[in-house]
Design a protein around this nucleic acid. Structure first.
Length: 204
DNA sequence: CGCCAGATTGACT
DNA sequence: GTCAATCTGGCGG
């Protein structure tokens, strides 16, 4: 089997919703020294620009959210309640957007991930946006890293997983759009919130 | 500088 | 189910 190829820039230069759906099954790779920590992306969320009340871009361009206006395929990383959120910049030309990586299925260097998280329950290892960044040692140092570069510390490569896709409203946001923008691989045990625990909508 | 909100998590009733 | 820890960025004084 040939080594997986990184996803090209054009992959990310599309509507965030499309990118969120197509990132499912792809493989996130974190290089730490000689080790490659890998996980299959099993859950994502799409965020738009100023028209999206749940988006970090809703208040217009600030220093911390500038990557959302930047080149598609860069990492956009910020902190929420002491947890780092890993996003991929994704939008059409002259637009704004990002995709949040919410859960991974651990693939390789699982021992290292467990050591980083100090848990021995593999289900809890990378099932959640804050959990996976801890397991893969991802923080603001990697903000704006180019995820199309296999020479870098963090990148995304093609996967070969056939899967069925589920969708729901986004998790944990205060003001959601009336649109399902969370996507996950159906039946995958590493998805952060089980299907039956999802309410039909976040709308008031 | 202090205050507050937030795309969370883990511990606990 | 409840609830607090803990950090960062934005904003007001």
């Amino acid at each position: 089997m040939l080594p997986h190829k990184t996803l090209p820039r054009e992959f990310y230069a599309r509507n965030p919703k499309t990118v969120a759906i197509e990132l499912l099954g792809k493989i996130l790779v974190r290089r730490l020294g000689n080790a490659h920590l890998k996980g299959i992306i099993v859950e994502t969320e799409a965020y738009y620009g100023i028209d999206d009340p749940a988006s970090r871009a809703r208040e217009g361009m600030k220093r911390y959210n500038m990557p959302m206006w930047d080149t598609p395929g860069l990492a956009f990383i910020y902190n929420v309640h002491n947890n780092w959120m890993l996003n991929v910049v994704a939008h059409e030309p002259n637009s704004v957007g990002a995709v949040l990586i919410r859960a991974l299925e651990p693939l390789s260097e699982i021992e290292l991930m467990m050591a980083n998280r100090r848990v021995n329950n593999i289900i809890k290892l990378t099932s959640g946006p804050g959990r996976l960044t801890r397991a893969l040692k991802i923080d603001k140092e990697l903000n704006c890293v180019d995820l199309t570069m296999s020479e870098g510390p963090l990148f995304i490569v093609d996967g070969e997983v056939a899967h069925e896709i589920g969708s729901s409203h986004r998790i944990g946001v205060r003001r959601d759009l009336n649109e399902e923008l969370r996507f996950y691989i159906k039946g995958n045990p590493f998805v952060s919130v089980s299907e039956r625990r999802i309410r039909p909508s976040n709308q008031p």
